[in-house]
Design a protein around this nucleic acid. Structure first.
Length: 964
RNA sequence: GCGGAUGUGUCGGAGUGGUCAAACGAGCUACCUUGAGGGGGUAGUGGCUUAGUGCCUGCGCAGGUUCGAACCCUGUCUUCCGCACCA
């Protein structure tokens, strides 16, 4: 008998729908509630295995909490704001083949493809399709509450508008500028996902330092990432073949300055510093080389430096010129080369004496590297000339690493002395900026190319709006919120703490993309990680807001006052009624619903949202809501692997929920997902377990149908029946604990695997002659424990055995009293059986007729008990032996005890010693069973009644065995 | 570099100071089930030894604390993840 899985899924989904089993209404505001949310998925495609894994947590919890008698709201929504959908639509428009192939793979017909060149169509198509998939999985989502983000949902749009007005009023949104990777062709910032090349590369500050040319108003700009090296500056380098220009800058400290920079970098000034930069004239390198310049103030007076030509300088990099610090091997070897090149010196009319005098100034000490770092690393890399460019670069990299990690500024560096390098760099940077001796610039950490194949640049965006997550007060109160938050697993708290501190201001607006317009500056669209941080509040009343006609709402009249009242209790209901034209009763109803559902009891996601969304969510809650409405618990999970490989489209192990459902059906893929892993480590979706899961479930079905209401009736409980009851209780207890702690794999293990294992043993012991009451209890409990994972299957089986209710609405089982003594019977028996097998193997007897089991002498049980007590007190052999010998009963066994006690002392315990009558009874009761198992006759004998060596060797819990 | 995590059998993974380390799942081996090609069952699966209650070795590596450590401490190495303006 096999199950028709497809059919049973359809059947029960329909039944649930028709009977509105999972429709959520608040009728009784005193009923305990449980509010579950999960970050909504992004609608750039169909949901996949990763979603299934993450969403199994809220789904299983929702069903579990329902069965425990909570009114549960598991809200779901679809995320459409942001840029990826727009970018993808654009690619469709351009006919980009991989994008179109992706759509084909999701089952979209060629004729439909053109529709996807419109971003709004994605927002229409995918939420609909994905909701279908979620229903197919049997998720307990109530459609009344689902919605999609963006302006396409006008009420949601109003809500985000309210949220940002609030944050703005509180002073948490400010305007500023910051550097971004930028595509000069598209004129937009280029995020990691929009790049053809250069994922993970970011702008790195590359400070430009001013050197004033003597007897002139010109300033030579030198770029560097190592401001610390400034303390060892010796000269300036100019590219003798470079093209340099004089430009006029307006916006630095409200003053006008004339800069000398490489021709090729003027655009950079335009992008990052002064968009109105004016080019004054060309300047010949001879005007720049062999001159004196005044450096910045670092730790004392301005120093005067000489300018020199250098072969390695490229006028297109940085600012086009650099200062020289001879701890750098590149600088050092270049200088040595010049010093020995008379012809070169003369061609630039350089002062020989000045050049000859130049030598390294030690500023940093690195362990085991001596005074002169440049020379020392040069020797290590066997460098002899400035022409060994590759080796020099390598040496420079290695030296930089060592300096950064281990270097300490020498005491000669004045106030910077003793600092490590990162600290020193920050300090110098700050001082330079304060003195007006430097300007901040940025360079990409590596090459970045836009999807449109244009190389990207760094641009400083001004007029950008930020959420001030670096506000110390806000941070402090959000830390408080984190301290109150329950985390599953708890060990991620450290990481979370760090993230809250690490977060800086967050650019919360975009120039393009889908989303809500910034209410007070319509040029900007609210960015998609910023518009989703408070929507859990919206969810509580989404049922009304998403169906305005039904509930007499007028979307166009919705306003901030409405949300102020419903969410914060601010203002008066009369005013809200007046301005929104919503009836007072309706407004109050929504306020009550919100007050009922909030706070969020459970929010989960994969761990990659920790450092943005989950953290933002806390910040936004602490900003707007009182403590009682802060989130209660976060559940984090790892990424999903498939057969221990990363899931990826290129590896061919990428699965959408839809295709898995088609192939295996919902319950099986759900169970496999729950069994894939738990906690924050990466989980493994085991494709072979899909088969195992189906086979095991079919076993459960067959067993339930074949044995429900059958078996021994009457009140008699055999010891094995008692044991089995105990094991059921143990499993219920463990499964419940696991569900409470969000450990779903453990819950499957306890509630399914272990239940089945114990059933096997029970079957073997009773030879299939079950106690009716016990087996019914088992079958019902087994099904209930599986409901969170395989609800359709459970309904089907539940009804097949004759139940009329929905098992989804049944109560979660409660563990009865667990009697640890009842377990000992089977432990003893299993130990005995395993020993008999061992002996039989070793006996090499042709045919075994009788196995005699000797139960230990009575005194041994007493001795074990006594030794056990002694061990609680001491580990000294002498002491234990001493107190044993005080007892008359044990005196005559001193020989045996001398051998036994040292072993127990070593182990620290005597194990579980019961009593002779107990062991005798267990074995007598099991004689029939043992005879069947070993196909021979079994005799049980008291130790005292026999003098055989095997009888003497018997110990409590370990019978003596004689095979004949 | 900074921060977090991780390291146990053929594999996924239990076990966080105490009787036996490897539960549970998977794989493999043998046998049984004549529903004998993806089903079910039993036994085995670090090494040695043995008519069983034994010994040795073993939880990344090296030390330490303890009567006792996979678990606590110190150091070290491996692997993975994050370091943002992006969902």
């Amino acid at each position: 008998m096999t199950l028709d899985w497809k059919r049973l899924h359809g059947t029960w989904q329909q039944e649930w729908r028709e009977d509105r089993v999972f429709q959520v209404d608040v009728e009784d505001y005193s009923k305990k509630k449980y509010f579950i949310t999960t970050p909504y998925p992004y609608m750039s495609g169909l949901l996949h295995l990763g979603h299934l894994f993450t969403y199994m947590a809220p789904e299983a919890t929702a069903r579990f909490k329902r069965m425990q008698g909570h009114n549960v709201l598991f809200k779901f929504a679809f995320h459409c704001t942001g840029t990826p959908i727009v970018a993808a639509a654009q690619r469709v428009k351009e006919g980009e083949p991989t994008q179109i192939a992706t759509l084909h793979k999701m089952g979209i017909a060629q004729s439909e493809i053109p529709k996807f060149s419109n971003p709004e169509y994605w927002c229409e198509y995918f939420p609909k399709e994905n909701l279908k998939d979620l229903h197919n999985l049997g998720f307990v989502i109530d459609d009344q509450y689902t919605f999609k983000t963006t302006y396409l949902d006008p009420t949601y749009d109003k809500f985000v508008t309210w949220q940002f007005n609030k944050l703005h009023q509180l002073g948490y949104v400010t305007k500023g500028k910051h550097p971004v990777m930028w595509c000069p062709k598209d004129n937009v910032p280029v995020g990691d996902h929009d790049r053809a090349e250069g994922e993970g590369e970011t702008p790195k500050d590359f400070i430009w330092i001013k050197y004033r040319l003597k007897h002139s108003d010109l300033i030579l700009m030198t770029g560097t990432t190592r401001p610390d090296a400034l303390l060892g500056q010796t000269n300036l380098w100019i590219d003798p073949h470079g093209k340099y220009k004089v430009v006029e800058i307006h916006s630095v400290n409200d003053q006008t300055e004339k800069w000398v920079v490489g021709e090729a970098v003027i655009q950079k000034i335009c992008d990052q510093c002064d968009p109105k930069v004016k080019i004054l004239r060309d300047i010949d390198v001879h005007e720049l080389i062999g001159k004196w310049v005044q450096g910045p103030v670092v730790g004392g007076a301005r120093e005067e430096l000489y300018t020199l030509p250098a072969g390695f300088i490229d006028s297109k990099v940085g600012s086009g010129l650099v200062y020289s610090a001879l701890e750098d091997p590149v600088d050092l070897f270049e200088l040595r080369k010049i010093q020995s090149d008379k012809k070169l010196l003369d061609s630039f009319h350089l002062d020989h004496a000045t050049v000859t005098k130049l030598k390294p100034i030690p500023i940093i000490s690195v362990e085991e590297m001596g005074e002169d770092l440049g020379d020392s690393i040069g020797k290590e890399f066997n460098i002899t000339s400035a022409d060994q460019k590759e080796k020099l670069e390598e040496a420079k990299g290695e030296l930089n690493r060592r300096v950064y990690r281990k270097g300490i500024m020498r005491e000669s560096c004045g106030k910077y002395g003793g600092m490590n390098i990162p600290t020193c760099q920050e300090a110098i940077k700050k001082d330079l900026l304060q003195e007006g001796d430097a300007v901040m610039f940025w360079e990409p950490t590596g090459k970045v190319v836009c999807r449109c194949l244009t190389p990207c640049i760094v641009k400083v965006v001004s007029n950008q709006w930020f959420l001030e997550y670096d506000n110390p007060e806000w941070k402090k109160i959000t830390h408080e919120c984190l301290d109150m938050l329950t985390l599953y697993p708890e060990k991620i708290r450290k990481q979370f703490d760090y993230v809250l501190d690490w977060l800086q201001h967050w650019a919360c607006t975009r120039e393009f993309g889908l989303g809500t317009k910034l209410p007070w500056d319509h040029e900007w669209v609210i960015e998609s990680l910023s518009d989703s941080t408070l929507q859990m509040a919206y969810c509580t009343i989404a049922k009304y807001l998403e169906h305005p006609k039904e509930y007499g709402l007028h979307v166009e009249h919705l306003n901030d006052a409405f949300f102020d009242y419903v969410f914060l209790g601010q203002g008066s209901v009369a005013e809200v009624e007046k301005s929104t034209k919503i009836t007072r009763v309706m407004v109050e109803k929504m306020r009550h619903d919100f007050e009922y559902w909030y706070p969020v009891d459970f929010r989960n996601s994969a761990k990659d949202l920790l450092q943005n969304h989950l953290a933002f969510c806390l910040f936004n809650h602490t900003a707007l809501f009182p403590k009682k409405h802060w989130p209660k618990a976060y559940v984090l999970n790892g990424r999903i692997m498939v057969n221990n490989e990363k899931m990826s489209k290129s590896k061919g192990n990428f699965f959408t929920i839809r295709e898995l459902y088609e192939k295996y059906t919902a319950d099986i893929i759900r169970l496999t997902a729950a069994n894939a892993g738990e906690g924050v480590e990466d989980a493994n979706y085991d494709l072979t377990f899909l088969e195992t899961a189906r086979n095991k479930l079919e076993d459960v079905y067959e067993f339930a149908c074949g044995h429900y209401n059958k078996g021994r009736s009457g009140a008699e409980m055999l010891s094995i029946d008692v044991w089995f009851e105990n094991m059921i209780n143990t499993c219920v207890e463990a499964a419940t604990q696991s569900m409470e702690n969000m450990l779903f794999k453990s819950a499957v293990q306890a509630g399914f695997m272990n239940m089945q294992r114990h059933l096997k043993w029970y079957t073997r012991r009773t030879h299939g002659n079950y106690n009716k009451k016990v087996i019914n209890h088992f079958i019902e409990t087994q099904l209930k424990l599986l409901v969170p994972f395989t609800p359709h299957f459970c309904e089907e089986t539940w009804h097949t055995i004759g139940k009329k209710t929905y098992i989804s609405n049944e109560s979660w089982p409660v563990a009865g009293h667990i009697d640890s003594r009842a377990m000992l019977t089977e432990e003893l028996l299993e130990q005995t059986m395993s020993d008999i097998s061992e002996v039989l193997k070793l006996a090499k007897t042709e045919k075994v007729e009788t196995v005699t089991l000797f139960v230990a002498d009575t005194w041994k049980y007493d001795a074990f008990k006594k030794i056990g007590e002694e061990l609680e007190r001491t580990r000294e052999f002498k002491e234990i032996m001493g107190s044993m010998m005080k007892e008359e009963e044990f005196k005559k066994y001193s020989g045996e005890l001398t051998k036994l006690i040292p072993k127990f002392v070593k182990v620290g315990s005597v194990g579980t010693a019961t009593s002779q009558p107990f062991e005798l009874k267990v074995l007598y009761d099991a004689v029939t069973f043992l005879e069947r198992e070993f196909s021979c006759s079994i005799v049980v004998v008291r130790g005292e009644d026999n003098t055989h060596a095997k009888a003497r060797g018997a110990m409590p819990g370990k019978v003596g065995i004689l095979v004949e």
